[in-house]
Simulated assay, not measured.
Amino acid sequence: MLATGLLSATAFAQPPSTGLGQAWPNAPDVSVNPNYHAYVFVLAGVQYIQINDANGNVLGSVGAAGGQFIVLPIGHSQLVTTPQQAATTSAKPAAAPTQVYNDGTTTISATPMSDGTTQLQATPALSADDCDVVTCSTHGS
């Protein structure tokens, strides 16, 4: 009886999210860009973040925990870069990167490429105490 009560309380604490790898998963779209869809799934403290294009095509997905990332083998996973893994492509950027997802700890940007694909880049989000290369080099931090 206690286990059932705990299970029910856990189930109500977070709405169910299913469908990792699907075009239209059963999860809220948390994208910060109207041209993309971002979905987050959480299991055992790891966030699995999936990025789809405007038509629902899965572009890629990463698992993120504690500033570490792993590229998941769904979508065009060969075009996903993380601090731990580089993507290799002969295509060149066709436009500037645009931010697709940011939860305060993880940022994902999308870059349209010259061959019509989209490259995703997952990085830890900068905190107020962090200094990016441009700010540090121009402000002496």
Rank of each mutant, 00 (worst) to 15 (best):
W24Y: 13
Q99P: 03
Q121M: 12
Y36W: 03
V32N: 01
H139N: 14
C131R: 15
L72E: 13
M1I: 09
V100T: 02
G5D: 10
N52Q: 08
L6D: 10
A86S: 12
P112K: 03
F12K: 15
A96T: 14
P28H: 04
T106L: 02
M113E: 02
Q68T: 12
V46C: 00
F12Q: 15
I51M: 01
V46Q: 05
K92C: 01
I70L: 13
A13E: 13
G66H: 10
V62Q: 06
Q84R: 08
T10G: 13
G63N: 13
L79Q: 01
S77H: 15
A95S: 15
F41K: 02
P83I: 04
T88Q: 14
A65Q: 15
C131Y: 13
P124L: 07
D103K: 11
D129S: 14
S61R: 04
P73C: 00
V40G: 05
N55C: 03
G21T: 05
V62Y: 05
T98Q: 15
T138D: 00
N26W: 00
N102T: 07
A94R: 14
A91G: 11
V133F: 13
A122W: 01
F41V: 04
V100N: 02
I108M: 03
A122Y: 01
A44Y: 00
C131K: 15
I74H: 07
G66P: 05
F69K: 01
F12G: 09
T111A: 03
A110M: 00
G56V: 07
I108D: 04
S17Y: 02
T10H: 11
G21I: 06
P16W: 09
A27Y: 07
P97T: 07
L59F: 07
Q85L: 04
